[in-house]
Simulated assay, not measured.
Amino acid sequence: MDPERTAILTIDLQNDYLHPDGAYRRAGYAIDAFTALPERIRPVIDALRQKGGTHISVQFTLVPRPDGEPLISPFLRNLRPFLARGDFAPGSFGHALVDALPPADYTIERVTYSAFYQTRLEYLLNALGISHLILAGLVTNGAVATTLRDAHLRNFETALLSDGSAAFLQAVHEATLTSLSGVTYQMTCAEAIGMLEAA
């Protein structure tokens, strides 16, 4: 892995997921596996940047209508009925990357499970000469897995941080790691730091 041609994608590590005042925590989703991620991932970001790599923050986005109500799919509305006006809205506190992580070099607004679908991510990676991706964030079986599979289809070399991602249930997280073993390398955050320091 050439660090200068590598980007770490942090997926959905936003205030509306993780901050006590965010949409998910207000709705009672206080999951320790989620809140532990930023401090675990930050040293990987720092190690990659010290070697000339790139940090891209992928942020879930609910686009507001002119009246402020979010454009939201019926499936997601049924799954997360608590999502309301202003949640995950561009420019809002909840949409922003959590303070525990350094500001990203680039930000991608994700509106579906994949960070590649109808976004500028692929253009950006190609323009920067990125060939390797490290993925981390939320949730393992959702946006992380879908983005990773899309990256694989586009011939990016990928590595998933096994302890730098999480799902609502640990069993689902572990099952997803197993299902992804055929399309990506997997490593812990500590292993990624060691690899980058040795590069």
Rank of each mutant, 00 (worst) to 15 (best):
P66C: 02
P66N: 06
P66T: 05
P66A: 13
P66S: 04
P66Y: 06
G68C: 07
G68Y: 12
E69S: 15
P70S: 12
L71R: 11
L71D: 07
I72K: 06
S73W: 07
S73H: 12
P74F: 04
P74Q: 07
P74D: 13
F75Y: 14
F75K: 08
F75W: 13
L76E: 13
L76R: 15
N78V: 02
L79S: 13
L79P: 02
R80W: 14
R80Q: 13
R80S: 04
P81S: 10
P81D: 12
P81M: 09
F82E: 12
F82G: 05
L83G: 01
A84F: 01
G86M: 10
G86K: 03
G86Y: 07
F88C: 03
F88E: 06
F88V: 05
A89M: 15
A89C: 14
P90M: 07
P90W: 08
G91Y: 14
S92F: 02
F93C: 01
G94P: 07
G94N: 08
G94V: 09
H95K: 04
H95P: 01
A96K: 05
L97M: 09
D99K: 14
D99T: 12
A100V: 02
A100I: 02
A100C: 00
P103N: 13
P103Q: 12
D105T: 06
D105P: 09
Y106P: 00
T107W: 00
T107R: 14
I108M: 04
